[in-house]
């Protein structure tokens, strides 16, 4: 009887989740506002009345186009070299693999300006490799859009390699074994089984890589210079504008913010949550 009475007393069974853990929630909210508030500042201080004409200025459009195109090319280059590199790190055994893995992450930890200097020393007109490119092929890389791409690949590719390597390590290798028992060669296994199964990881890596390339500043200005129209990307344009016309800098920043947000949201929908 008592059992029946008790049951009818609490009609809707509830799971108690306990009290709100403020010790976690409070710092989380502080962190979140720290990340979001600067963008609010941009929105508040933006010169809204003159926005349209400022955004459509040829210099802004040129910088935007250069940024988007170089970041995209840099991502494609990173994909074509970085995915095989990630495969090599995740799926093969060779002496010194740990060292190679550490080397891959160097661009992540050194300041990008240092990377730019290093690139200049190697690929510059008098650089270790650059002098032969100049002498044999008449190719000078520094201060060209190609240099922008190279600088971006240098700083952004490690993000892709690390992400894809993680995805490959997390993938169930027994599917690769199943493919092998069906007669698939290693290349077929990679293209038809492994690659499709780690596609979300590759997508996430490519997004990280693209975002990092889009924001690249230090290596670019050192190695590629700051020539409007050819090597002045959006981050460089924002920095230059800040010196003479802070309002222009705000406009450029907002444009960069909106474009990258739009691209990231679209790609995330497509790749990460198919």
């Amino acid at each position: 009887m008592t059992a029946v009475a008790t049951r009818s007393d609490r009609r809707a069974p509830r799971t108690r989740s306990g009290r709100v853990p403020w010790i976690l929630v409070l710092p989380a909210l502080v962190g979140l506002s720290f990340l979001i508030l600067p963008f609010a500042g941009l929105l508040v201080r933006a010169p809204w009345p003159t926005m349209v004409e400022r955004v459509t200025e040829p210099e802004v459009l040129a910088a935007l186009w250069l940024s988007l195109s170089t970041a995209t090319v840099a991502t494609l280059v990173s994909l074509s070299f970085g995915v095989p590199l990630a495969w090599m790190l995740a799926r093969t055994e060779f002496p010194g693999r740990r060292v190679v893995r550490a080397l891959v992450t160097i661009p992540l930890v050194i300041p990008p300006v240092v990377g730019g200097v290093a690139l200049l020393l190697v690929l510059g007109r008098n650089g270790l490799v650059g002098r032969y490119l100049d002498a044999w092929f008449g190719l000078t890389l520094p201060f060209t859009p190609a240099a922008v791409v190279i600088a971006q690949v240098f700083v952004a590719m490690p993000f892709l390699v690390i992400t894809v390597e993680g995805a490959l390590r997390g993938a169930d290798r027994r599917y690769e074994e199943a493919a092998a028992t069906l007669g698939a060669s290693r290349v077929t296994i990679f293209t038809r089984v492994t690659l499709p199964m780690v596609l979300p990881g590759i997508g996430a890596g490519a997004i990280l890589c693209w975002a990092r390339a889009l924001g690249e500043f230090g290596a670019t200005i050192t190695f590629a210079g700051n020539f409007p129209g050819t090597t002045q990307t959006m981050p460089l344009a924002v920095y230059m504008a800040m010196q003479r016309d802070p309002e222009a800098a705000i406009v450029l920043s907002l444009v960069l913010l909106l474009v990258s947000l739009a691209v990231l949201v679209t790609l995330r929908e497509r790749w990460v949550n198919p």
Binding site: E177, A180, T181, G183, S185
Partner: peptide, 10 residues
């Protein structure tokens, strides 16, 4: 493996 005349059910 890929050249063995086998089929495998995992």
């Amino acid at each position: 493996v890929e050249h063995r005349p086998i089929g495998m059910v995992f």
